[in-house]
């Protein structure tokens, strides 16, 4: 692992954490959406499967531990890790429209299905069902926001497009 990849992973994980816990969009219904998925999507698109996956896993796992949902930590770790990895792997830093749509759909599907299955196992069907709708909304909004953020950041901070050239050892 190169230093660049190490720091990127650490800071993207911290970013996922903060956007999961701190930036909350209140919804009309009185609940809120967090933006962790936007950060995961961004890291996966910008830096590929490994940074995206590890950042997603670490960031949301820690956010659950420290944000007061320790029982979700392991699920989030696995589900969001897989989400980030898969999105990054599908897109491979090339922004072809078809692949982007596929990645967004697959990423959201993993989140929704992953939580559902894990929660049935851990907490029973009831708790699992109550989570489905918010999860769909959250991961889709998050992923779409993540894509548009990536496009904007690419313009505002061009060095980002060259990071991967330096990720490889000399």
């Amino acid at each position: 692992m190169t230093i660049r990849r190490l720091t990127l992973t650490a800071l993207m994980a911290a970013l996922v954490f903060v956007l999961t816990v701190a930036v909350r969009l209140p919804t009309a219904a009185g609940g809120y959406l967090h933006l962790g998925d936007a950060a995961i999507t961004f890291s996966a698109f910008a830096f590929g499967p490994w940074v995206g996956g590890v950042a997603g896993a670490l960031g949301t796992g820690l956010a659950d531990l420290y944000g007061g949902y320790p029982q979700f930590a392991l699920i989030s770790f696995l589900v969001h890790g897989l989400e980030g990895w898969l999105m990054g792997w599908l897109v491979q830093r090339r922004m072809k429209t078809g692949m982007v749509v596929l990645a967004v759909v697959c990423g959201s599907a993993i989140v929704v299905a992953g939580y559902f299955i894990a929660e049935i196992f851990l907490f029973g069907v009831a708790a699992a069902l109550t989570e489905v709708l918010p999860n769909i909304l959250q991961s889709v909004v998050g992923a779409v926001l993540g894509v548009s953020i990536y496009l904007a950041v690419k313009r505002a901070y061009p060095p980002i497009t060259r990071y991967h050239k330096r990720e490889r050892p000399e």
Binding site: T7, L19, A156, Y157
Partner: peptide, 20 residues
């Protein structure tokens, strides 16, 4: 929230540059 998120992310990326 768009400009806010972008500024936060750019901040994080610059931090990663420096930290590297």
């Amino acid at each position: 929230y768009h400009p806010v998120l972008i500024a936060i992310i750019i901040g994080a990326l610059r931090l990663s540059d420096q930290l590297t």
